[in-house]
Amino acid sequence: MNATIGRLLLTRLVAAILTLWFVATVVFVITNLLPGDVAQELLGQSATPEAVAGLRKALGLDLPPWQRYLEWLWNMVRGDAGRSLVNGSPVAGLIGSRLGNSLLLAGITALVAVPLALALGITAAVHRGSVYDRIVGAGTVLAVSVPEFLVASAAVLVFAVQLRWVPALSQLGRLDSVLDVIRTFALPVLTLTFVIVAQMARMTRAALVDVLSSSYIEMARLKGAGQARIVVWHALPNAIGPIANAIAFSLSFLLGGVIIVETIFNYPGIAKLMVDGVSTRDLPLVQACAMLFCGAYLLLVTMADVAAILANPRLRHR
């Protein structure tokens, strides 16, 4: 039995690594497909041919594509993402100085969003078909159909402009008290939470409704067990796998949301760094950030798969 699980998990891990390699290849191909010449573009039209040739050599552009690809891939594996085309500093350093900020934002959001989503999903599943359930259902459809920047700007309008509870922009730096932390992170976290809670609550509800409609639950009900006991004692243990799956999967939506949220609140994280990189066409920076985000996404999706495998007895015995 354990060997089966081990093999399944190993398969997932290998698949994740192969996918990451594929993604790296796609990113490399896309960012090298452009007919233009990076060296020419950097130096401008008035550059002498010698200067362009020199820069091409310095950037390694004179090598054949496959050789550049292998070198780039090897550097990525080693964590050396090259130098920024815009200011010449190492990309790894640029990312390193901001990664902590982004992780902090994501972490706080997860701490807020996960309990909230579970509460919404579980209560909606328990009161399936009620007005409350329909309102939660309609709310989640609304939340996934609305652009993140609408949520963010509405939050700023209400809490910063009308009520003046929090500043409109987050400024890291003066985090002296708990109150400062709350004031800095309130709006970004509120926006991100709104974005991911909908998906998570919907999947949690679906997982629990599935379990609640099985015959052993009916048996428990016939036996005279109370509603709370049925949900907590009988249903939840069997829904943990799908719910863990839902949490990990929904957290991957953070990656998209964080791009908008860091921009709108001027938060110094890596998503902001990447957006700035795209607008200045700083390709090494964009490549590195893209790989980081895709890696995080794959990690979360793989964790979702692993949770589903570990918690499902049918998969364990396959």
């Binding site: 996918t19 594929f22 993604v23 796609v26 990113v27 896309i30 960012t31 991957s252 990656l255 998209g256 791009i259 990447m274 957006v275 990189g277 795209v278 066409r281 390709l283 964009v286 490549q287 893209a290 985000f293 895709c294 996404y297 794959l298 999706v301």
Partner: peptide
């Protein structure tokens, strides 16, 4: 397995 916003940013870059 490439998140859509990320894909968009890379293509636009």
């Amino acid at each position: 397995s490439i998140p859509s916003k990320m894909f968009g940013l890379v293509l636009v870059a």
